[in-house]
Amino acid sequence: MTENVATPKMVKIDTAGIYYRDLNAKLRQLVDEGVEHIELTNVCGQRYIATDLSRPVDIKIYGTPGNDLGAFMNGSRIEVFGNAQDCMANTLNAGEVIIHGHAGDICGMAARGGKIFVRDYVGYRAGIHMKEYQDKKPMMVVGGTGQDFMGEYMAGGVLVVLGLGLKEGETHKANFIGTGIHGGVIYISGAFEPHQLGKEVGVAELDDKDRKILGDLVNEYCAHFDCDAEAILRKPFKKLYPKYLRPYGRLYSY
């Protein structure tokens, strides 16, 4: 008869010096054993954290996780107390990633579901080719601003850019916002010039449906980062949408 050992629900790991493959193997094992909450301290560049867990868990990360944090993640919740590197939430399927800091390039790349909250700014190509299908709809909220090519080739989902930290009348720095967009929507606060947008991008005011989606996301953002949702929602927002659903549909046809 095997001895029945109660699995702890909460496990802490000091990850200093642990190679990423060994760390991810350990996480897989813990999750298989039934652990629900995992706290990782001294994280320093380990890649692919939480990428292939057998069921959703809650992971808190202290330090700087490596590239492809939460890649292909399916339902877990990651909270990072620090900055994220490149490719965060790459092809995220479901779950939540919350970054108490900034994130590097191509965060949310090809996400097909789940939610991403970045307190500060994001690097190049945030939300590139996010997509949606039926009830799967990725949503990303960026507190500050983004660098060039935000929402590039977006095919679905919602990208919110709050423009916090921009001074009165200061424009976003990003160029090529929404280049190649053919699905989904971007809600953005803070000034921008027409030339900063991709040529496939239309600009509109928000309607009630938009306001509802934006309001819910801003409330969630403020709950994560402890700030004033009403003040943010009083700021003017614009809606960026794809002018064409198949911008290159005829490129090779004639």
């Binding site: 994280v43 320093c44 560049g45 330090g63 700087t64 996780p65 490596g66 590239n67 620090g82 900055n83 590197q85 490149d86 590097g104």
Partner: peptide, 8 residues
């Protein structure tokens, strides 16, 4: 190339 290397 990566922030983690600096933080180390």
């Amino acid at each position: 190339s990566e922030e983690a290397a600096i933080r180390l």
